[in-house]
Design a protein around this nucleic acid. Structure first.
Lengths: 231, 231
DNA sequence: TAGATTGTTAATCGATTAACAATC
DNA sequence: TAGATTGTTAATCGATTAACAATC
């Protein structure tokens, strides 16, 4: 029953969130049980990996039978912290910020957007979803009067560091950082970086790696020192 | 001179993109050289890791001196495939799609948005940046007449799989998938998933792990089976 | 040459996998 | 009991790190 939460490997944590997503879908489809092999197939993993990951939740399956979907869902939610609700603020109401605020799925995971801030006077006062954008200057005051757990940082790169340190001193526990800038994590504040350009680069790399470059039409061709050595 | 491109570990690939970002900043600031220790400090890594990563580019540094910034930039761009240009289409022009289309930084990495598609008649014909949104039905025709390398998939979850298989048969090499659904990668098509809800969950988890739950104000308290076992 | 920093080795650490005993 | 599937072990694989020889 003692959940060894602090021992869960980070690779497992990421997959637990994927399992959760899949399990909730299964739940809606009416099945009460799953087998590790079935989850594995759906997610492109090995069944032994699924079992190993799920064993981090404790003894949650039944040998010879499988796992009860509901049990898994609540166990994973408990471990990930999504059985609680999190108050989240949005800082930076540009294209990306606006998109994130409307992102379905945050809400059902327990993340509640409680305020949105921007420093642009043209944006202050406008609506983002049900919220009115506040001036960034009001950030600290807001954080004093309301509990704020997390911040989504979606400001331009050049503003990110300054805003991040303000967030830090206002007592927020974590930042989801979309700015292409390294915000240092420390014991007071946890930072989870998301770099969209980097994801596109990763994709481009794996395409080059698999298909070679020649595949890509009239793109600058340098087959002589790139394609041939691939074995 | 032979670049062992296919041997680069995936963890290194991700960091190479980070180095590139940092190096381009350094380049703008006028420095011609960097040391591994300096890059390491900026990115929160160990210097030995930086050197090991960069050694995947070949012999690119000078002992006793450091690395020439320009050399690194072009070597990394070459390896990542961003010294070429990539034709990218956007499928799904919702909030997220619109935000991504305006994302500064894609362009300077060589990713050119050449078309945008949506199945919603209300969106078809509207502008997204300089592009006019096309009907999703025109996808295949477009792919036949123009070279398309990559697709950004930003449609709702329930539409994602169907659109993905159309993309696949239209000969596109890679998909950056923002839909919370698993799209299988195979040798014909590479898929890079980006799950924004998952990133927020990861953040929540590491906050719980570091601070414990009690830190979070009046949130449902279950210290008895969660906080105490943390050593 | 003396000082500095890379490139690389060997050791450590962590994550994945196959296999199978435990048990429903 | 027979069949099935978990939970867990041990082996493998990959990534990180410290240390240092090579060399600018």
């Amino acid at each position: 029953m003692a959940k060894p939460r602090s021992e869960i490997p980070s690779a497992t944590v990421s997959r637990l969130a994927l399992y959760l997503r899949e399990l909730q879908q299964i739940e809606r489809s009416g099945s009460a049980n799953v087998r590790s092999g079935w989850l594995a197939e759906r997610l492109g993993l090995k069944d032994s990996q699924v079992r190993r990951d799920l064993s981090c939740l404790g003894q949650v399956g039944q040998r010879g039978v499988g796992y009860r979907v509901q049990d898994l869902v609540s166990a994973i939610q408990n471990v990930l912290g999504t059985d609680r609700s999190w108050n989240v603020i949005l800082v930076g109401v540009g294209n990306l910020g606006r998109a994130l605020s409307g992102y379905r799925g945050f809400d059902q995971l327990g993340f509640r957007l409680v305020a949105a801030f921007d420093s642009d006077p043209n944006k202050v006062g406008t609506k983002v979803g049900a919220l009115q954008v506040q001036d960034l200057d009001h950030l600290e005051r807001f954080a004093q009067t309301q509990r704020v757990d997390l911040a989504i940082l979606a400001v331009p790169a050049n503003a990110a560091s300054a805003v991040a340190s303000r967030l830090q001193s206002s007592g927020i526990a974590g930042i989801l950082n979309f700015a292409p800038v390294v915000i240092p994590s420390n014991s007071a504040i946890t930072v989870q970086p998301v770099d969209l350009a980097l994801e596109l680069q990763r994709l481009a790399f794996s395409v080059v790696q698999r298909h070679g470059i020649a595949h890509l039409g009239e793109i600058a061709i340098r087959t002589e020192d790139s394609l041939e050595e691939v074995d």
